[in-house]
Design a protein around this nucleic acid. Structure first.
Lengths: 141, 141
DNA sequence: TATAATTCCTCCAGTCACTAGAGGTTCAAG
DNA sequence: CTTGAACCTCTAGTGACTGGAGGAATTATA
């Protein structure tokens, strides 16, 4: 049996976050001691590790809840789990593309500024003020 | 003079977001008509375009507020603006690296699942459950 | 066994950057 | 002068936590 702090140490999930997961229903409420403290078993530990890993991969809590549903209904189809993972992959890829464009632009901005001049003719500020310098299609989500 | 809707159309920033920017102080409160409606001049338009562009580049509103301070104190040093841009660039790069690691992992997970099996032996779920499958260093921020 | 230090409890508020809705007012066109 | 679009304020909600207050339980040490 693990206390909430022990669970936190073993999974790397902060204590208030564990309680938050319980509140939202993604983590089952564990048994309590006579003094009302949470005591987790290895199933609880496993579940939290699963959530942590999925969160680290960028899955939303909503997606994780769906994944857990699937785990608990083993006769269900794998299709949905695969779909969730593929949506997540597409999302990660689009984020990477967007960030790469930002990187290019920031490099250009930073390169043009040696940090020595006065703000009045600072290229960082000028670049930010003037859309035309690099086209305007940054807003795409 | 532009109404708030006109400003929204010209900058691509939604109306409630413009009001939100005013609330937080990042955008100056404009003059009002007799009927209490906001009317912006070209300075307001420019300022909002600046904010929009910086937001698209991933700057926080806090960082943008600092940048605006610098623009309004033209005798100040360029150094701070350059620093803010460089921090932003470093942040973008670390996000890209993290996302690339996630991409690799998600590809591996997805490839192992044809979506046809049952959840009980679905590799997506197994991969998520088992840290050991790909090492454990996903939590690095 | 007594005490001290640590960990735990609940509840509430705050973060960031918006977004949405209710209920009412003003503006511009015809 | 009427209609309908756009505007106003205010409140509350989003996601995924994070932090603090104030107090109770547990664990370690003397």
């Amino acid at each position: 049996m693990y206390s909430i702090g022990e669970l936190s140490r073993r999974t790397g999930v902060k204590v208030p976050t564990i309680r938050y997961y319980e509140d939202t229903g993604i983590l089952d409420a564990p048994d309590r001691t006579g003094g009302n403290q949470r005591r987790y078993d290895s199933a609880g530990l496993e579940r939290l590790a699963f959530i942590k890993h999925a969160r680290d991969l960028g899955f939303s809590l909503e997606a994780i809840a769906a994944l857990i549903q699937l785990r608990q209904a083993p006769e269900g189809s794998c299709h949905r789990a695969d779909e969730i993972a593929r949506v997540q992959l597409a999302d990660v890829r689009s984020k990477i593309m967007r960030l790469r464009a930002l990187e290019t632009e920031l490099v250009r901005i930073s390169k043009s500024c040696d940090g020595q001049g006065v703000a009045d003719d600072c290229n960082v500020l000028a670049a930010l003020a003037d859309h035309e310098l690099f086209g305007t299609d940054h807003g795409a989500k």
